[in-house]
Write a protein that binds this DNA or RNA. Structure first.
Lengths: 131, 131
DNA sequence: ATAAGGCTTCCAGTAACTGGAAACTCAAGG
DNA sequence: CCTTGAGTTTCCAGTTACTGGAAGCCTTAT
C-alpha cells in the first residue's frame, strides 16, 4: 500500500513516516514507480511507534521496544531483561497518569460548572496547602 | 529556594526550568543577588510539568492543564469543559499504556529467559498473523 | 585570599518533527 | 490523447523543546 494509506492506518503523518524510515525505524519495499510500498507488518510497526511516542517514550526507547518484537536474533534472556526494565517505566507512567486523571475527574465532579470560580481542587494543587 | 533545590525537588534539570520560565510557564521571584527564588507553589507547577510532559502532553497542552489549576479568573464552566476534553485524552492514553504493559508482561512471562529465541508473542506482534 | 561550586545570561547545537518547493506518477474526464 | 488534480518523490529550511558550553558574578569553606 502507498504512504497515504499507511498514514491513515497508522495515524502518523506521511512526513513522519518518511522521517522514521530515514532514521532506520522501518524499511518498506519500493514499487516499480519508486513509490514506497507498505506491508501490514510495516503498518503495525508504525502504529506501535505512534502509540509509544504519544506516551512519552523517546525515539531511541521506541527503537529498543521495537527490537523486542522484531529482532529474532536477540536472545530470549536479553528480551526478558529489557522488557522488565520497560515494564517498571510503564507502571510508573500508569500510576502518574491515573493520578492525573483522578485529579481532573475530581475537578470535573466538584466544580459547579457555573460562573463561580471557586473549585475546591484549585487551592490544593496550586500549592497553598503545602507552602 | 534556589534553582538547584527546585531542580532536585521537581526532577527537572535547571536548564529546563529556566526554559519554562522563558516561555512563560512560571514566574519565580528574584532574590536580592539576582538568583531566582522558588516557592513550593513553583515547585508544584514544575512537578506537574515534569509529569505531564513525560506522559506525552505537549508544552501547550501542559500550559492549558496548568491554567485549570492556576487561573483564578477563568470561569468554572470553562475549567469543566477543558478538563473533560483532557479526561478523554488521558483515558485513551491509559488504555494504550495498559495494553502496552500487558503485551510486555506477557512477553516476560512466556519467554524462557534462556538462549532460545522463540518467544510466542513475537510473531503475533510483528504482523505475521494479520498480514 | 583564593578556590570550588552554584548561579547568571547568551548563543549555539540537537532531537523529532513539519512545511514548502519542484518534479514525477497515476486515475479520471473531455 | 491530453489535461487536470491528487498523490508521491527528494531536498532543504523552519519549529519545538530542550541541552551544552562559555564567560562572568555570587557564596561558602579553607
Amino acid at each position: 500500500m502507498n504512504i497515504g494509506t499507511a498514514s491513515e492506518k497508522s495515524g502518523l503523518p506521511a512526513k513522519t513516516i518518511r522521517y522514521y524510515e530515514d532514521i532506520g525505524l522501518l524499511r518498506p519495499d519500493r514499487a516499480g514507480n519508486g513509490y514506497r510500498d507498505y506491508s501490514m507488518s510495516d503498518v503495525h510497526r508504525l502504529r506501535f511507534l505512534q502509540r509509544s511516542r504519544s506516551l512519552g517514550f523517546s525515539v531511541e526507547e521506541c527503537r529498543q521496544l521495537l527490537s523486542l518484537y522484531g529482532d529474532k536474533e536477540r536472545e530470549s534472556a536479553d528480551v526478558k531483561a529489557i522488557a522488565e526494565i520497560k515494564l517498571v517505566e510503564i507502571d510508573r507512567k500508569l500510576a502518574e497518569l491515573t493520578e492525573l486523571r483522578n485529579t481532573l475527574r475530581h475537578l470535573v465532579h466538584n466544580c459547579h460548572g457555573d460562573d463561580r470560580p471557586d473549585c475546591p481542587i484549585i487551592d490544593g494543587l496550586s500549592g497553598k496547602a503545602t507552602q
